[in-house]
């Protein structure tokens, strides 16, 4: 079966800056795919090109056989979008937001009204149909935005940082919602800064930086392939000194300020080497996607 979304050699430049450089992505039907990258990596531009809102300078995009941007409007008929910033209509109630948005898809009021109760239930907002947007919490607004993205019963759901700014409770509710959607066979494309989110939700993902793919695959495979299995984070003033004398106890070291990251296969050896340095604190854990991400994209700030 051909992939639902196929992106080939996608390129976009703004003036002298190449924002997206030769990106290739395939997303199969029913897959949850993550697009990861630091700020300014080209994620949002890629999504905007995918939706046909920005003209690519190079490459080819197809969604369900439709060529983007030429057939973008037809394609958007089958896509639900959850934008990075909530843009609900503040003058409307929760239910009116869904009704008005459904009309943009050419749906008649009868069809939309029939869908609203289930969508509000999905968003955990059943009692809030008539509540004004201003009375909803940040998490409720986010869930309503997700429900709004489903008003056209889309095949593909595009989520741009769906849980940024949410507290852990609200984040977990969104995650449950997204899992229910993949169980229903929906295809999901999401961008995120939260590696934990990507690790939990995504079947496959791509890490982009400076507009290029730097790694892609299943989260577990990426961790196995790109990084040593254990990390010991060591903190303290004398950490640099300790690294010089005991650094050989691990395979790879990353020093960032007063924090040292020791990557290796044998956490016990590192712990033994730390026995004689009582002023250093440490945490040991299995390596995760965030370690892969930081290894590949570096630790320096992107908006500095």
């Amino acid at each position: 079966m051909p992939p639902l979304v196929s992106i080939r050699s996608l390129g976009k430049r703004y003036g002298a800056t190449e924002v997206v450089r030769g990106l290739d992505i395939d997303i199969g039907a029913g897959e949850c795919f993550g697009l990861l990258g630091p700020n300014g990596a080209g994620k949002t531009t890629t999504l905007r090109m995918l939706l046909g809102l920005v003209q690519p300078d190079a490459g080819e995009i197809r969604i369900g056989g439709m060529a983007i941007p030429r057939e973008a409007r037809e394609a958007r008929q089958r896509i639900g979008v959850m934008p990075q910033m909530d843009n609900l209509d503040p003058d409307f109630s929760a239910a009116e937001n869904l009704l008005v948005y459904g009309r943009y898809f050419g749906l008649n009021d009868l069809t939309i009204r029939a869908r609203i109760p289930a969508l509000l239930e999905f968003a955990g907002l059943s009692g809030k149909a008539d509540s004004p947007i201003a009375t909803l919490s940040g998490g409720m607004k986010r869930r309503l935005t997700l429900a709004r993205a489903l008003i056209n019963d889309p095949e593909l759901i595009v989520l741009d940082e769906p849980t940024t700014g949410l507290d852990p409770q609200a984040r977990h509710v969104i995650w449950q919602g997204l899992r229910r959607l993949t169980q229903q066979g929906k295809t999901i494309l999401l961008t995120t800064h939260f590696m934990e989110e990507a690790e939990r939700l995504c079947d496959r993902l791509t890490i982009v930086d400076h507009g290029q793919t730097i790694a892609s695959g299943r989260p577990r495979d990426l961790i196995d392939r790109e990084i040593e299995p254990f990390v010991t984070e060591v903190f303290g003033e004398s950490v640099a000194q300790w690294a010089e004398t005991h650094g050989s106890c691990c395979e790879r070291l990353e020093l960032s300020g007063e924090s040292l990251y020791c990557y290796g296969r044998d956490p016990d050896r590192v712990r033994a080497a730390l026995q004689h340095a009582p002023d250093l604190h440490y945490v040991q854990r299995p390596s995760n996607l965030e370690d892969v991400f930081l290894k590949l994209t570096g630790r320096e700030l992107r908006d500095a």
Binding site: L51, L53, R73, E74, R76, Q77, I79, V81, P83, M85, N87, L88, D89, P90, Y101, Y104, F105, G106, N152
Partner: peptide, 14 residues
């Protein structure tokens, strides 16, 4: 400010 247009453009409107 409200980004109402952005929401519309994500739907099949030009």
């Amino acid at each position: 400010v409200q980004k109402t247009w952005e929401a519309m453009l994500n739907a099949p409107l030009a």
